[in-house]
Structure formats: C-alpha cells, structure tokens
Design a protein around this nucleic acid. Sequence first.
DNA 1: CAAATTCTTCAGTAATTATTGAAACTTATG
DNA 2: CATAAGTTTCAATAATTACTGAAGAATTTG
Lengths: 165, 165
Amino acid sequence: MDEERRRYVEEFGLLFGQFGLSRMLGRVLGVLMISDPPERSAEELAEELGASRGSISQTTRSLIQMSLVQRWSRPGERRDYFRIKPGAWHEIMRREMEALGDFRKMAERGLDLLDSEDPYARRSLEEMRDFYTYWEREMPTVLDRWEQESRSRDQKALDSTFRQS
Amino acid sequence: MDEERRRYVEEFGLLFGQFGLSRMLGRVLGVLMISDPPERSAEELAEELGASRGSISQTTRSLIQMSLVQRWSRPGERRDYFRIKPGAWHEIMRREMEALGDFRKMAERGLDLLDSEDPYARRSLEEMRDFYTYWEREMPTVLDRWEQESRSRDQKALDSTFRQS
DNA sequence: CAAATTCTTCAGTAATTATTGAAACTTATG
DNA sequence: CATAAGTTTCAATAATTACTGAAGAATTTG
C-alpha cells in the first residue's frame, strides 16, 4: 500500500472510532473497501496494517458476526479470504435502528420510576419516549425504500449488461 | 436516590457507552432526566453520582456544548443548576445526521483513490456512497416532520391548558 | 494418519481514556 | 475591595480497552 492508501485506511479507522466502534474494525473494513481484487487473506491484512495475526483474527470475527464481511475461498487454496458483504452499510444502519428501541425503553422505564410525580418533571422523559417511538416507526420505512431503489438500480445494471452480451 | 434510581442512572450511562459516548455523560443525563424538580446543581450531581467535582464540571461542560443541557439559575442563589434542554433528543439525532456526510465523503475519497480500477473492485465504495447520499437526503425530511408534529402537539397541550384556566 | 499450513484463543502488556483532587480562577456580596 | 462561594483546569493516577505473540486447535493434503 502506498502512503496515500495507508492514510485513507487510518482515517477510515478514525471514522469508525468516532462512531463508537473500534478503530481496528474500521481499518480492516477500510482495507477491504479499497482492495482490488476485493478480497484479502488474514495474512495480507496483518501485513498491510502492521498488526498481529491475533488482532486480525479477532477483528474479522467481529466483522463477520456483524454481517459486514464474509469469508471467501479460492478453489485450490487453503487459506481464507475476507471481503465486504454486499449490503454491509444497510446492515450498519439496521443495527442503529435497533438501538432506537433501547432508548425508547429507557424512557418508558424512567416514566414508570417517576410514576405519580409532577407532570412538569416528566416532560423530558415524555419527549424522549415520543421521539424514539416516532423514529422506530419511520426508520424502517426509509430503509425499506432504499432497498427497493437499490434493487431496481441493480436490475437496470444487469439489464444493460445483458443487452450488450 | 434509592437503589432503583441508582441502577436506572447506571444503565442510562451504559446505554450512552454503547452508543459511543462516555458513560459519565449518560449518567449525568440520566440523573437530570429523572430529577424532580428537573434541575440539579454541580454539587448535587457529584453527590448523587459519587463522582468528583472535577469530573462533573467536565461532563456538564460537554453536555452544554452538545446542546443537550442548559444552565439554570434560581433567583437569589449563587450556584448554577443544570437541566435537560428541550429538544435534546432531536439534537442528538441531528448530530448523527451530520455524521452521514462524513461517511459519504469517505466513500467518495475512496473512489478517487481507485480511480481507473476494475469496476468490480469499486462496487463496495459505490454502494457506500449511494447509501449515505440517500440517507443524507432522507433524514432531514423525517427530522423536520418530527418537529412539525411535536410543535403541533405542544400547541394542543397549550390550548387545552388555556381552555381550562 | 502424520505433517504442514492456517486459524483462534488468551494471558500478558501497551496504549488510551476517564477520573480525581488540589490549586487557580471567577464571580457575587457586604 | 476583601472575603466567601462556586467553578474550572490540569497533572497525576486509576480503570478500561486494544493489541501482541506464543501455544494450541483445527483443517487440509499427500
């Protein structure tokens, strides 16, 4: 990797750090995003990132478990490769969406706790509950629409390939 | 604070931890959410959380800077109080929304880097770019609609108060 | 099934981040 | 303007989290 790519990968890591995930998770994802061909072995990742095999193993495991990356094998080769799973970004957003429910529930628990207290004191929790209830209803709609749109985009790409061949 | 509230506050902290912010930020917010009256002094927060004044000072500063909390004073008292700012949750979501742009830009930078490479290798970055472009367009709409709905809800509450008095 | 290759686990360590507490600073009050 | 009350800053330290590397487990191959 040249200097420019190394920097790109590091910033990919930082972006993930800001986002609340580990930097290494972001770095590995970053390398895979700019890989051509789009898969890399554990050894290659370790070398490109100057990281230990152990840490690559941990990280790829998490990424697979999060459905962001998939294992890939090449016929006749023993080692595993890793590549970005199509729909990875959608998956990240879906997780985020699920967290909304935790926030709503937290608000509801708080309201139970305040049960019969001054309505004025309950306002913030009510706002929190209503807000997350709203988003829990709206997000899936928006996410589904993306899926429809991207499916139809893929279909078009496929059609044009088909016409040409 | 009784045991139940202490646990609630701690879990509020954990929720914020998961979300990528600091636990203490969440704890302070948690205390304020269930406070009646809804404001607390730095000293009260320190005592309720068993935390130092320094750490409370840092945390309230961040919370104010993030527009989640506001200072509050009581006439005739020297000390400052803190309370949840109306619209705090909206503000959290707005920040999240801004992060979408960082992800889109990261994808675009990656595509520049891969410039003339195999279209197949560019796919993941293109998906990432398209996905975040889509969300950057859609989120503000959804967020604005919440604002309208919540404004009209507040208006209704105000009306009914008005009628009664 | 033995040898070679690859992968995972985990105890130890390094790096990072959060928290304390004391001193310095700021602001209000008589 | 001196004193008191309250707040912030920051160096030191505690707590947490990330990473390494070696040992061992799993898998493939001849």
